[in-house]
Write a protein that binds this DNA or RNA. Structure first.
Lengths: 113, 113
DNA sequence: TCTCCATATTGACAACCATCGATGCAGATG
DNA sequence: CATCTGCATCGATGGTTGTCAATATGGAGA
């Protein structure tokens, strides 16, 4: 209950003429999902190997990134939940590949809208 | 102390001929700094406004993103510590702008190397 | 069926993080 | 000098996350 103010007529804001709306809340949420999935050094290296591979990548080829086997599995699940990779089991081994266009949301960072 | 094994001759690994080195540990660390800074919906919206603005952006124009003023300040600090933005105080108000080329490390995601 | 191997899941724990209210600080203004 | 305002910092808190040891799962082979 503030008293009746009659004088907030002048400069309640700065005059930089800013009106840029930027990303919407929904857009930001979508992009953040991808960014969060990649925002870890270990996951980044795993992703770069899978995405940079010619075909598919066996999990057994990802065990030299410096963390334990369960941790690698944990990171693979995170990348899968973010829609960046998918996998298939063939016999004893499990193979992962990058989902095409999964990084498309990141284009929203490049400039407007 | 495992006993002398003489038979690990066959298939200890799969045969997908994978040899992709992917990002180095140092590279991953660098890229992850930028990704971590942007991997939050609120920071993303703040960044998109600052980076999308014509000139500089006054903090007072960033107070409508849905969090308290101290939280906005906290996010601005995170972005600054990550080298994405810089600021300057002019009189009563503080103005922020995007550091050119700050997103360059993200090019490492696009393909090889 | 019994064993072995590759991978996933579980449970626990320490570290980190986003958020807010309260407070501090620096210009501007009277 | 006193006060107001815009922004930053502090301290606390609940939630999330990366990590590992232990265990489960499921296919292959003896």
């Amino acid at each position: 209950m503030s008293p009746t103010r009659t004088l907030p007529l002048a400069a309640t804001t700065c005059d930089d003429g800013c009106a840029a709306p930027g990303l919407s809340e929904a857009q930001a949420e979508t992009v953040a999902v991808v960014l969060k999935a990649l925002a870890d050094p270990v996951r980044l290296r795993i992703w770069s190997r899978i995405a940079g591979a010619d075909g598919q990548t066996c999990v057994c080829d990802l065990q030299d990134v410096g963390v334990s086997q369960p941790t690698v599995s944990h990171h693979l699940r995170k990348l899968r939940e973010a829609g960046l990779i998918d996998c298939e089991r063939r016999g004893t081994w499990v193979y992962y590949w990058a989902i095409p266009g999964a990084l498309a949301p990141l284009d929203a960072l490049r400039s407007g809208t």
